[in-house]
């Protein structure tokens, strides 16, 4: 969507079931090979009592919503705050919701938009936060 098409309150979400394969892929791509994400034997002895997904894996789903749904293609991600509130385990369905909170008009070819981001597994909020993005304007010349 273009900047002009956005309105406060608009929202979009994705649902992703986190698999052990996703966790392995994330361990590979991030380099975070902490055994709490990869070894059931080790993880069972930690405070988590079992394997948990990387917090940043669930957080990256936010990037997925922003980049593909709301605002979508062309979005430039400039900031994100995250509070990791509860663990996500393999098999959990993470619902990642992005809601437009504030629209800041700027004089440039892109406008700044603040979005609330909420990640849930069932009724439990696992991550909450706020994203800041730049969204291309429909009419760049006029801007």
């Amino acid at each position: 969507m273009y900047f002009e098409e956005l309105a406060v309150g608009q929202s979009a979400e994705t649902v992703r079931v986190v698999t052990q394969a996703d966790i392995v892929a994330f361990a590979e791509v991030s380099g975070d090979r902490n055994a709490v994400h990869l070894s059931p034997e080790y993880a069972s002895k930690t405070t988590f009592k079992g394997v948990v997904a990387h917090g940043m894996l669930s957080a990256s789903f936010i990037s997925g919503v922003l980049g593909t749904k709301l605002p979508g293609e062309g979005t430039i991600y400039i900031g994100q705050s995250l509070r990791f509130l509860a663990p996500v385990r393999p098999g959990d369905a993470v619902v990642t919701r992005v809601t437009v909170k504030e629209i800041r008009a700027t004089a440039k070819s892109r406008g700044e938009v603040i979005c609330l981001t909420t990640s849930r597994v069932g009724d439990v909020i696992v991550i909450d936060g706020e994203a800041t993005v730049l969204v291309p304007k429909l009419n760049r010349e006029a801007a």
């Binding site: 992703r16 990256s60 980049g67």
Partner: peptide, 13 residues
């Protein structure tokens, strides 16, 4: 790989 893991297939990347 990050696009697959995150679902962010934004063509910018």
């Amino acid at each position: 790989l990050f696009a697959i893991a995150s679902g962010d297939v934004n063509p910018t990347h």
